[in-house]
């Protein structure tokens, strides 16, 4: 069955263009989050009964700091892609639609930078 519209065929547009990047990014980050998420869940089990200094020292260790930044970054990237689809599905109206998409990206980037900076600060050994 021909799935493309005549206009789409004339313009040479169709699938496997910009939409593919979103789809693939979501799958790739999902696969990474299976590993990173399980690592974080197991790590939390080891941290729940410890005090502030133990948690801060744990997060500052090189391997843990690297995995924490990878986990947070991948989590927020996956989250931004998912929330983007929800906005595209449910937020209508030209202004609200674009505004929600922009706010979504901004909030996720701010969270990623703030979280990554925190881990780097912990890794550097001092409190902020």
């Amino acid at each position: 069955m021909e799935m493309r519209s005549p206009m789409g065929r004339a313009l040479g547009l169709g699938s496997a263009r910009s939409g593919f990047g979103h789809w693939w990014g979501q799958r790739l980050s999902a696969a990474a989050l299976v590993l990173l998420g399980l690592w974080f869940a197991v790590s939390v089990l080891g941290l729940v009964s410890t005090d502030y200094w133990a948690v801060a020292a744990w997060a500052g260790e090189p391997l843990h700091a690297i995995l924490l930044v990878l986990f947070l970054g991948t989590l927020l990237y996956h989250s931004s892609l998912g929330i983007q689809v929800v906005i595209e599905d449910y937020v209508h109206g030209p202004v609200a639609h674009v505004a929600a998409l922009v706010v979504n990206r901004f909030v996720h980037v701010v969270l990623a930078v703030a979280g990554a900076w925190s881990v780097i600060a912990l890794s550097a050994g001092g409190q902020a």
């Binding site: 801060a56 947070l72 900076w117 925190s118």
Partner: peptide, 14 residues
């Protein structure tokens, strides 16, 4: 994820 980030920032905050 927002709460997780707040937790990390607080951890760095002391």
């Amino acid at each position: 994820a927002v709460v997780f980030t707040v937790w990390l920032v607080a951890l760095a905050g002391g």
